[in-house]
């Protein structure tokens, strides 16, 4: 088996995650989809690391995880405060930009 298949898998997962972000309205699920996209990226990075024979890809994947963790913390805090003020976790309800 060619390790390139890992890249195909990553692309597939990334696309699914992105489509999920676009389709779902629940902010939490939306966030999960973002995490899925990040994970797909990490998989691609790890596969790259293997192909190139050095650990830089893994280091970057590691950083991605750290950043993702930070992002999740802040994002979930935002969702919680949003829910507190609006009693809704739907991103469509947070549409103050609309006219």
């Amino acid at each position: 088996m060619n390790p390139v298949n890992y890249l195909y898998l990553a692309a597939l997962l990334f696309t699914i995650g992105a489509t999920g972000v676009l389709i779902r309205r629940n902010a939490i699920v939306l966030f999960m989809c973002v995490e899925l996209m990040l994970n797909a990226c990490n998989l691609a990075l790890v596969a790259f690391s293997r192909m190139h024979g050095n650990l830089d890809g893994q280091i970057i994947a590691f950083f991605v995880m750290v950043v993702a963790a930070a992002e999740v913390v802040v994002g979930l805090a935002i969702i919680v405060s949003l829910f507190r003020s609006r009693h809704s976790a739907s991103v469509d309800d947070a549409s103050l930009m609309k006219l």
Binding site: Y6, Q58, F62
Partner: peptide, 11 residues
């Protein structure tokens, strides 16, 4: 599991 299979044990 895939990370492990790709030699990224720590990750």
């Amino acid at each position: 599991v895939f990370y492990l299979a790709n030699g990224a044990y720590f990750l």
